[in-house]
């Protein structure tokens, strides 16, 4: 049953992605700026312009361009159907390669942040629901009013100032590792994992240390909605009939707490999944402040430079990832909650 559901959703997802890629492809070519202009800064003669335009493939009619995008040009392979996203007009590197380089950076950052945000947020939310008016509850109220309502970049800058400049106990916003340290060999692209795979615990620790401020900033901001959602759901669940009945049946407190959490978790899970999907592009401000070269930065660079292949690649990647995440959420829901029929 689950497999059929998954397959069906993947098929629908493919259709969605196809529509999306067609839309993006044609829409960005409607934008008013001409990407060729970037190449003719030195020499803007008509001949130079024509040559640049040709090298970008923009001299062909749009439908021919789309064909080239899908099937590649000539016999050198390439094309979307062969899994190639094209060549970036800014760097001349293959977009596949660039995404493969930048995406794990962002995923590493947000995954670690989410682990902490969820790991701390869920217990605090549960505490707040179980002891209303208690320390956890009051603390989160203050947090929500004061901290959670501010944008993450202001917190990032504050943390850098406090911990790096004033206290000197945190590293500077120099990315994921010290500039003097050689990163481990590229396996997954996530420095923490690659360092462990290479057996370099020192690099692993250093990466964690350099990532500590950006992760602190992100989880600080993310935990706000998570705590609130968990708290609301658990509080609501605790009023449910089956909780009352469980109490009447004399079930121990621990069992009841697990019951409540299990029933309350579904909406929180949905929220976490949606936040995660959003963060793939939404972590761009943190990436910029902490000099981390992630997918968000790549997307901004591509958009500002009107680098069509890169833009297309980023849109496709983020959409595909988001669809997969939503599918994963739904499957988890179905596994957790027997009432959800798939």
């Amino acid at each position: 049953m689950i497999w059929r559901f998954t397959l069906r959703r993947l098929a629908v997802g493919l259709v969605q992605l196809s529509v999306l890629i067609v839309a993006v492809f044609f829409l960005i070519r409607l934008l008013p700026a001409d990407p060729v202009a970037r190449f003719v800064g030195m020499n803007a003669s008509p001949e130079a312009y024509a040559l640049a335009e040709q090298s970008l493939g923009l001299d062909l009619p749009v439908t021919r361009q789309f064909e080239a995008f899908l099937f590649g040009e000539g016999n050198d392979g390439g094309g979307l159907f062969r899994g190639e996203l094209g060549t970036s007009w800014v760097t001349g590197s293959s977009v596949n390669q660039e995404i493969r380089q930048y995406l794990p950076v962002t995923l590493e950052l947000i995954t670690l942040s989410f682990l902490i945000a969820v790991g701390l947020g869920v217990p605090i939310g549960v505490l707040g629901a179980v002891n209303p008016g208690g320390a956890a509850d009051k603390g989160t109220l203050v947090y929500g009013l004061f901290a959670g309502s501010q944008p993450e970049f202001s917190w990032g800058i504050i943390f850098i100032f406090v911990f790096f400049v004033v206290l000197g106990i945190a590293p500077g916003p120099l990315g994921r590792l010290s500039p003097l340290t050689d990163p481990p060999d590229f396996v997954t692209g996530a420095i923490t994992i690659d360092a462990l795979l290479a057996g370099r615990v020192d690099i692993f620790l250093e990466a964690l240390w350099y990532l500590s401020l950006p992760i602190l900033t992100l989880s600080f901001v993310l935990s706000g909605p998570i705590i609130k959602m968990v708290r609301e759901n658990v509080a609501q669940t605790m009023n449910a009939d089956f909780m009352f009945y469980g109490q009447a049946a004399g079930l121990p407190r621990g069992v009841l707490a697990r019951d409540a959490l299990r029933a309350a978790f579904a909406p929180a899970l949905t929220l976490i999944g949606i936040l995660f999907g959003f963060m793939i592009g939404g972590a761009v401000l943190i990436e910029s402040i902490f000099s981390i070269s992630g997918l968000g930065q790549y997307a901004i660079r591509s958009i500002l430079a009107f680098d069509y292949p890169a833009i297309q690649g980023v849109v496709l990647t983020i959409s595909a990832l988001t669809l997969l995440i939503y599918l994963a959420i739904d499957v988890c829901q179905a596994l957790l909650d027997p009432r959800v029929s798939v």
Partner: peptide, 19 residues
């Protein structure tokens, strides 16, 4: 080592802290 630090204010403080 060329390192990309896109924000000029960050370049400022990194240099100030001699990193």
């Amino acid at each position: 080592v060329f390192k990309r630090v896109p924000q000029s204010s960050n370049r400022f403080i990194i240099l100030r802290m001699e990193q």
